[in-house]
Measured scan of single mutants.
Amino acid sequence: TEYKLVVVGAGGVGKSALTIQLIQNHFVDEYDPTIEDSYRKQVVIDGETCLLDILDTAGQEEYSAMRDQYMRTGEGFLCVFAINNTKSFEDIHQYREQIKRVKDSDDVPMVLVGNKCDLAARTVESRQAQDLARSYGIPYIETSAKTRQGVEDAFYTLVREIRQH
C-alpha cells in the first residue's frame, strides 16, 4: 500500500529536517529553504509493509500558489509548527483551512506536530497545542528532528489516521 503524505507549515519550522531524519536517519543542521522535494521510503507499520511517498513543501509565502496542487494529491498532512515560534503555531489554522477548502472536506487525515521540542526556549505550551488538536479532532505529537524523538511516531500516526479514514 502506498501513502501520499504531505508536510506543511511555516518556513523554518523543520519540515525538511523531520523528513530527512525519518528517511535518512540524520539531522540536517543548516537551513536551506525548500521549494519542493519528495522522498520515498518502505516501512512496516503495524505489520503492514507500506511505501511512504512524502512531499516536503515550501513554507515560504512566495510558493503558496503551489499549495493547491499538492493538497489535492496528498492523502494525509503533517501540519508542523516549531514550539519556539508562536507565529508558526498561529499559521497552522490557515494551512488547515486551505487543506479543507482544496479537499472540499472537513475530515482530512492530519496530525499536528510541534517540532524542536529539544529546545528550552518554548513559547507554545503543550497544552495550547493539545487544545488546538482536540478542537480539530486530530492527534498532537511533539518531535525533535535533532534527537529523533517522536519522528517515526508522527509519520506513522498519520498513516494510521489515513487507514482509519
Results as ranks from 00 to 15, higher is better:
N85C: 11
I99N: 03
V102R: 03
E2K: 08
Q94L: 13
Y39L: 01
G74H: 01
T57Q: 01
R160I: 02
K103E: 08
F27M: 04
G150F: 07
I83E: 07
D53C: 06
D91Y: 13
Y63K: 06
D106M: 06
D46W: 11
R127S: 11
Q149A: 11
N115Y: 00
D91C: 10
E152V: 10
V8K: 05
D106F: 05
Y39V: 05
E30F: 12
G9L: 03
E97L: 10
E2R: 06
S144R: 06
R96E: 11
D106G: 09
Y70L: 15
D106I: 12
F81S: 05
I162W: 03
P33S: 07
R96T: 07
I54D: 02
Y31G: 04
V7T: 09
I99F: 04
Y95K: 10
V159Y: 03
T19N: 12
S88K: 14
L52K: 03
Y156I: 14
T157F: 10
E161V: 08
E125A: 08
M71K: 07
D153S: 07
I83F: 04
K146H: 13
Q164F: 09
Y70K: 00
L119T: 13
Y31K: 04
V44R: 12
S126W: 05
V159K: 02
Q164A: 08
Q69I: 07
D37V: 02
Q21G: 13
Y63I: 09
S64I: 15
V28A: 07
L22Y: 11
V159H: 01
R40I: 13
E48H: 12
K146L: 14
Q164G: 15
Q60T: 14
K15N: 01
L51C: 07
M66V: 08
M66E: 08
C79W: 06
D29V: 09
Q21C: 14
L132G: 02
R96Q: 03
S126I: 13
L78V: 09
L18A: 09
G12T: 14
G11K: 15
D107K: 15
E30Y: 08
Y95S: 08
I35E: 01
V7M: 07
M71W: 09
D29M: 05
S38W: 01
A121K: 05
L55N: 13
Q149N: 06
Y63T: 13
F77W: 00
N84T: 14
V108T: 11
Q69C: 14
A120D: 11
I20T: 06
D118T: 02
E75N: 02
L112H: 01
T19W: 03
F155I: 12
V124N: 05
D104R: 12
A58M: 06
I92H: 00
Y31L: 11
Y3K: 08
E142Y: 01
Y70C: 11
T157H: 14
G47Y: 08
T123D: 14
V124S: 11
Q164P: 07
D32L: 05
L55C: 08
A65K: 00
S144D: 15
A145L: 02
D118I: 00
A82S: 14
G14A: 01
I45E: 04
Y63F: 05
N115W: 01
I45D: 05
L51T: 14
F89A: 11
V6L: 06
E161N: 13
M66H: 05
L18K: 04
D106W: 09
C50F: 12
Q128E: 10
Y70I: 14
T123M: 14
T86S: 11
P33A: 12
P33G: 03
D37I: 03
L18E: 05
E152K: 07
Y140Q: 03
D118P: 03
D104C: 09
E97K: 08
P33F: 05
H26C: 10
A10D: 08
V124E: 09
F77N: 00
I92P: 02
G150K: 09
E97S: 13
D106P: 10
A145H: 02
I141W: 01
E36Q: 04
L55Y: 04
L52I: 13
I141Y: 07
I35C: 08
S126M: 13
I92L: 07
Y136P: 02
L158S: 01
A154P: 10
A129Y: 08
F155N: 01
I83W: 09
K116M: 14
V43S: 12
L22D: 04
A120Y: 06
T49D: 13
K15Q: 06
R72W: 01
S144C: 15
G12C: 11
L132P: 01
A145T: 05
E36G: 04
I162F: 12
T49K: 07
H26A: 13
P139H: 12
G137L: 05
K87S: 11
I35W: 05
A154M: 11
A145V: 10
R67K: 11
F81L: 13
V28Y: 10
R122K: 11
L52G: 03
N84A: 15
I45T: 12
H165G: 14
V13M: 11
L55S: 07
S38Y: 10
Q42S: 10
E48L: 10
I54Q: 01
D53T: 03
D106S: 10
V159R: 01
Q149V: 07
G150C: 14
Q128F: 10
Y156V: 12
Y95P: 02
I83R: 09
A82R: 02
E2S: 04
Y31M: 08
D53R: 05
L112K: 02
Y140A: 00
G14P: 01
E30R: 04
I99Y: 01
S135R: 10
A120R: 11
R101F: 06
H26V: 09
L18Y: 01
